[in-house]
Simulated assay, not measured.
Amino acid sequence: MKDVSAGGAVVNTVLGPVPARELGVVAVHEALLSVVPGAEYAYDVTIDRAEIFEILAAKLREFRECGGGTIVDATGMFHGRDVRLYETLSRATGVHIVASTGMGPEEMLGGYFLTPQTNPPTPWPADKFAGLFGEEVTEGMVVPRVERRGAAGLVATTATRAGMTATDESLFRGAARAANVSGVPVSVRFGADAVRDLAVLLDERLPADRVVVGGLDRKDAVAAAAPLEIARRGAYVAVDNIGTEGDEFVTDDERATLIRDLVDAGFADRILLSANVIGVAKGGPGRDLPYSHVLTAFVPLLTAQGLSVRDVRRILTDNPRELLSVR
């Protein structure tokens, strides 16, 4: 889809299509409101939308003050996505918000998305997932039992950490088919093998440059040289847990070195950054970093590695703009 009147590509935001050139600096894999499915019914969980609004609005304003322009909420359909709240937040703060359709991994799906008449249960066919996700782009995201609102800007899904299951594969193929029809990109979190999981999407004839593979700052991915191989295949490499260090992830210094190596290998146009912040978490652990963390704490590490202002601008602005543009 092209917005002829705007003279260029557009991106689906919760307030409608906007010219891609207006996105500014983009945080490509964040969460605004994350609610563990079922937590809304728990006796010890309070969900006060007015309070949530105030918390998120303050965080988004701080992001904007630090130079941010767009937040991509990559949580998909069933982790607390609140389209009306996101619309109000975007209007109040001036930050563009791109919301996502999709779901996964298998362990986070309800029984509705299996076929219980079979023994053992089998997943929905990929075409059913494709239809569900595609309609959230072409007809608007569902507000349960009420209406549809703005169009989803991407399809997000995740593979099981121990390895892609049959249900995960159906989700991946459905996501790819929905993206091929609707023109939005696919954002995935890989399971045990990033290259193998990407191959499932490419097998659906989804162009590699319509895919971003997240979690590539995990230690196992870096040790297997997965970021370089993903970039070689033409997909986007998301270093998107910036600020998180420990047993599973590399340090921020190591992330900066990884990005330097990718730039030196000629893949500056395939790098995306984010911190996987959770603005408000209900029923599960949060990630209480500012949305500006990449800008304020990580970009200085990149410049210390010798990246130019042009390199940083390409990674933070140009690459996400190309990815998110509806085609």
Rank of each mutant, 00 (worst) to 15 (best):
E22G: 08
A9C: 15
V14S: 08
P37C: 02
V11W: 10
V26H: 01
S34G: 10
N12W: 08
L23H: 08
A20P: 08
V36N: 04
V10S: 08
V26P: 02
V11P: 09
H29L: 09
E22R: 11
V26E: 00
V18Q: 05
P37N: 05
G38M: 08
V28R: 02
R21G: 00
A6K: 09
V4Q: 15
P17V: 04
L23G: 07
A39E: 05
E30Q: 03
L33Y: 00
D3N: 14
E22Y: 09
G38A: 10
S5N: 13
E40Y: 02
V36Y: 06
P19A: 14
V4C: 13
V14H: 08
P37T: 04
G38D: 07
G7A: 15
V26M: 07
V18L: 09
K2C: 13
V18T: 09
A27S: 08
L33N: 02
P17T: 06
E30F: 05
V10H: 06
V35L: 07
P37L: 01
G8M: 12
P19C: 13
N12H: 14
A6C: 12
V11L: 15
V35P: 00
Y41P: 04
L32G: 05
A31F: 01
D3Y: 09
V28G: 03
G24Q: 07
G7T: 15
D3E: 13
D3P: 06
V36H: 06
V28P: 04
A20V: 09
V4E: 15
A39I: 05
E22Q: 14
G24I: 05
L32H: 03
Y41F: 12
A27D: 02
E40N: 05
D3H: 12
V4R: 14
V11A: 12
A39R: 01
L32E: 00
H29W: 07
A31T: 04
V35H: 02
E30K: 01
L32N: 05
N12A: 11
V11N: 11
V28I: 14
P17W: 03
S34K: 10
A31E: 01
V36P: 00
N12M: 11
V18E: 02
L23M: 15
R21M: 01
V25T: 08
A31N: 09
S5R: 14
A31C: 10
G7P: 13
V18C: 07
V36L: 11
L15S: 11
V10C: 09
L15W: 08
V14C: 11
E40D: 10
A6H: 10
G7I: 15
L32P: 00
A31I: 01
Y41K: 04
E22W: 08
G7N: 15
L15Y: 08
A20D: 06
V36S: 07
A27Q: 03
L23F: 10
A31L: 07
A6F: 10
P37F: 02
V25C: 04
